[in-house]
Design a protein around this nucleic acid. Sequence first.
DNA 1: ATACCTCGAGTTCG
DNA 2: CTCGAGGTAT
Length: 800
Amino acid sequence: MTNASSEQSSLELSHRLAALRQQLDEAGYRYYVLDDPSLPDADYDRLMRELEAIERAHPEWVTADSPSQRVGSKVVGGFPEVRHAVPMLSLNNAFEQEGADDRARYAEVADFVRRIETTLDRRQPEFSVEPKLDGLAISLRYLDGLFIGGATRGDGETGEDVTGNLRTIRSIPLKLRGTGWPRLLEVRGEVVMLRRDFEQFNARALKAGDKLLANPRNGAAGSLRQLDPAVTAHRKLSFFAYAVGQVEDGALPSTHSATLQQLRAWGFPVSPEVATARGFEGLLAYFRRIGEVRDQLPYDIDGVVYKLDDYVGQQAMGFVARAPRWAIAHKFPAQEQSTRVQAIEIQIGRTGAATPVARLEPVSVGGVVVTNATLHNADQVARLDVRVGDSVIVRRAGDVIPEVVRVIPGQRPEDAHPWSMPSHCPVCGSALLREDGAAAWRCSGGLFCPAQRKEALIHFASRRAMDIEGLGERFVDALVEFDYVKTPADLYRLSLDDLLAMKQQADMRDGSTPETVKAGKIATRWAEKLLEGIDASRQTSLARFLFALGIMHIGSNTAKTLADWLGSLEQIRLQPDLVLRVLPDVGTEVAASIAGFFQQAGNQDVVDRLLEAGIEFADESTPDPRLRQRLDLAALLNGAHIAKLGPKSVELLLRHFPTLEAIEAGGYNHWLAAGVPAAAASALEAVLADPARRQVLSNAEQAMRALLAAIPAAAQVENLPLQGQSFVLTGTLQAMSRDLAKEKLEALGAKVAGSVSRKTSVLVAGEAAGSKLDKANELGVDVWDEAKLLACLAEHGISA
DNA sequence: ATACCTCGAGTTCG
DNA sequence: CTCGAGGTAT
């Protein structure tokens, strides 16, 4: 066998180099990609060492594609390989299963415990229990208390020597503390990137325009395999010890938990969550406890690990294949899963928004079976380039809502073609249109579109709107489909017979079953309940009613603003947009939307019919006196956005001409005399010359005067105790729902907002409060717990 | 004009 | 919960 000795000619060496590279490439490919090794490991190592020797002698020959230069998933290079003296085993996994009780759901854990109990003839054996950190397993070796090197787990038999990088991790002791360590000690544990460090890294990368890390785990793995330790040093990694490997000339305690204590004493970080537990019940309690605090831990974990605590017992249990019989990893349901896109369909929302939704092959993500995932809008589909037939990664974002994270490359069927938004609504066939610059495509069918009618009704009946009990999606579907209900007003004209007839039609279509025929009496019961629910909803509040109408841009908050300031439906439904503009939080768009809604004859008709049907508001009142300060001709003119006519000019103008009539009578020259700039005066002249625009202004003025006249003369303003305070609610409250707490706080004059900012006075944090609590702490906002909230309410005479 | 603050709208599954 | 966009303060 040749080697890179100096006597050899350059030419021979370069040929040898090429041959080595080819051989190693091929062998590496078969080994790592095909999983079908063609060359014994030892031979591979020998060839690689020869290649490296030649390259060291001739650095000018080193090319980026040389097998020696590989970094990453396919071929290990750059780092020497190390054989673990004691193999780093893998653990058997236990996952949650379908089942009626704990023993069935966690059968794998139950079996694990039972096997130990029978084999060792012990009851309620003691376990050392610990969180299973989601990072990179490594082994550290210490000789006479000094760190001499470390390696990744690799395949368990052989890992990569990443000593240089491990030295940069501050939590890995380079020298052991205390006394009594064995001459040779191998400590095993997990290298992780703490969430805090991960977020910091990504925040910085985002600013610098660098690539972001996908998750902390990738951050740890990628950083540890950097060839340049200086790079690793810049990524903050942490280490937590969880086991001992090789030991020579020394002794350890007789249990695993005591060993961990010993490791702590020697200077190793050990997760504070490690504990001991007895028997199946004990393990399960630990699993649940960790599951609850999982989000608050500084690192990502993907489960917990149970280890039989005493080493004698471990030895007696032995191994199956490559996993110990004395330990098991109890995994949380996976948060990310891969699945296939069966179809991409369009959903039409209440406002006509067309949302693409991926229909997925059912897959369990984070404990629930996911079959749908939103794709948000056409841009998002294009960005991800999701196609029907693709394999995709699905994740439950923010704990609840499934989303498609990315497409798995290389698994796309050949006939897959890019997805595009259809040109027409799949429900009613109207054109789908997109406004300039907007992200959403909308069905142009309006209430002609059954999908929009349906969604509008569901919204109308929803809890925060009219709160009609018994009217869920199912019934709305049928009511709309068989044309019993076209508008919300139709709901109040339904009779028992209508509902029963509808039910019959629905059954016929679905294929009537003997059961439904027999169940005639039960069918009557639900119909009666629904009618009761509809009847009860007749008593409501003005804000709820306005919200229920589903006017664009009018959510529950703006609805409340309208109700509070204008007092009655009659005042609201007649106001031109220029008057509405003066209300807080109402600008051009919102005002135009409200006025536009009530200008449509169809909508007016629906509202009239609802009132005729007996809708009553418990809380109608007179317009708010504060309107006096906000509502004057200046406000109207400013709101009209007449070019060049700014607030200054308006003020000058109105000083001399207090009414629209007076302004008109004055005329151009007198406006100039009042100090109004020529450009503004011409613009005003042009507006008044246009009959349509003149009409708008005069209507607004008239409406304004009528409104002012409706304000009671001597209104005493009572000062509420929490007036001017802004609250935010988060987490789960025990005594009442957040909605109810909001109502009670508002009754005391407080504002209840949805998110925390500097302006927030108090954050009320219930159980399991999340990001809002962090933000409040960051901004130094007062934080109350539920008890304090209840005390505050009680103090002002409101009970829970 | 810009930066911040809010609100509205859409979303899944049990 | 998150995103986008409307409203307001600077």
